[in-house]
């Protein structure tokens, strides 16, 4: 049985690692300017964690295979170096891993969260509510009108609770159920939760950020490839959580202008 354990474990370890090594399951294309740093970090971590995984599992498999069910009364002995060796190995192996990944790798995080958006970044407000996203563009005046939660009226498509009758700035605000943006332009997304917590996740953008009720957060990113991408909610928000999604349309500047013009004319 000990031998069997060794063999089975070795097979499991190798089979587990195979899909990774063979790149069967990889992240979808990265369409952001900051994403490659995250992907690199992920790949480095995968290499180090993968080696640790294989190393430890195969050692375990070998030791059990080799040292189980020997004749009763067989001599037992300790590994040379003993506990000191193990502690030193842990500090050296993991210590370098922490330094290499943990400290150096924070750059990828800094790219996303510590570089402020450029002043010319395009501001779009996103509102998450059970179970839909809505997006609001400031319109020609470049200003968002204030929100009035008591004015929210889904029946009349007033998703944000705008009051154009009294707020001049709201009059030209454009509301859309899809996030249309021009390619290669920095976007700053202002995040507003209408009811409970939600999250904004676009795999290709390597962006995930919660919507927190009562706390208006912002993220910024620059999409670099045109196309249609899925925005999904990743914060459990109720019975329609699995069904809460929208699309990110990254358009060429011309197409975006066209889209914008059409939206304005629809108003």
């Amino acid at each position: 049985m000990g031998k069997l354990f060794g063999v089975v474990l070795a097979i499991i370890a190798i089979l587990s690692a195979y899909p990774i090594v063979a790149h069967w399951y990889v992240q979808p294309v990265d369409i952001s300017t900051h994403g490659h740093a995250i992907d690199e970090q992920l790949a480095d971590t995968m290499a180090e964690a993968g080696l640790s995984f294989l190393g430890a599992q195969l050692l375990l498999a070998f030791f059990v295979w080799r040292f189980s069910q020997r004749k009763p009364g067989s001599r037992v002995w300790n590994i040379p170096g003993g506990a000191t060796l193990m502690v030193a190995a842990a500090f050296i192996l993991v210590g370098t891993e922490i330094l290499a990944l943990g400290v150096l790798g924070q750059k990828a995080w800094a790219n996303v969260y510590f570089t402020p958006p450029k002043p010319d970044a395009m501001q779009i407000q996103s509102q998450a509510g059970q179970f839909a996203f809505y997006f609001r563009y400031p319109g020609v005046d470049g200003k968002f009108g204030p929100l009035h939660p008591d004015k929210i009226d889904e029946g009349n498509s007033n998703f944000f609770g705008l009051d154009p009758a009294n707020d001049v700035e709201s009059r030209d605000d454009i509301v859309s159920a899809e996030l249309d943006v021009p390619v290669n332009r920095e976007i700053q997304l202002l995040m507003h939760a209408k009811d409970v917590g939600h999250s904004f996740y676009v795999r290709e953008l390597r962006i995930q950020q919660d919507f927190v009720p009562g706390l208006d957060l912002a993220v910024h990113f620059t999409p670099t490839q045109t196309g249609k991408y899925e925005i999904v909610c990743t914060q459990l928000c109720g019975l329609g959580h699995y069904n809460m999604k929208a699309y990110l349309n990254v358009l060429s500047q011309e197409d975006f202008d066209k889209w914008m013009k059409q939206k304005i004319s629809e108003q």
């Binding site: 037992v76 590994i79 506990a83 842990a90 993991v94």
Partner: peptide
């Protein structure tokens, strides 16, 4: 990791009853 290595390292030279 220290824990894991201690368990692993202890197996070396043992006579494991399965």
């Amino acid at each position: 990791t220290i824990l894991t290595l201690i368990w692993l390292g202890s197996l070396y030279g043992a006579n494991i009853r399965i």
